[in-house]
Design a protein around this nucleic acid. Structure first.
Length: 108
DNA sequence: GCCATGGCTAGTA
DNA sequence: GCCATGGCTAGTA
């Protein structure tokens, strides 16, 4: 494993998102906060540039109101919800219960 | 530098 | 409304 001297924004986002364990989710805003940033949208933009969707679980990053949010360019494909379902994170009425599944990230 | 682009959000109504 | 990113120019040298 190479030591990263300077991390690009994307890499820092990916690294943080990789810490979210199976069975939990976090939000775009939470990732931004942990990075000391103020732009949840920038986080979303970084995630869509994720080229390794398998090792970097961007399906575990959702909207702050519990809605699923986008995934691989398609919000309605059901792909994201299906992946979450496999991890026993249930979607009810289009929403995930953040009280139950929210994973708080430590600061970067 | 400027400007469009969002996988969004806090806070109204 | 926000605001970080990234792509793309005009305008210097």
């Amino acid at each position: 494993m190479l030591i990263m001297v300077s991390s690009t924004f994307d890499q820092r986002v990916f690294s943080l998102v990789s810490r979210v364990p199976k069975g939990k989710v976090t939000t775009y805003g939470e990732v931004a906060r942990a990075l000391g940033m103020r732009s949840p949208r920038a986080v979303g933009q970084a995630l869509k540039r994720n080229d390794r969707p398998i090792s970097i679980p961007c399906h575990r990053v959702i909207m702050s109101d519990g809605r699923i949010g986008g995934y691989m360019g398609c919000e309605r494909s059901g792909r994201k919800a299906r992946l979450l379902g496999k991890e026993w994170v249930t979607v009810k009425n289009g929403k995930i219960d953040l009280r139950r599944y929210f994973f708080r990230l430590k600061g970067a």
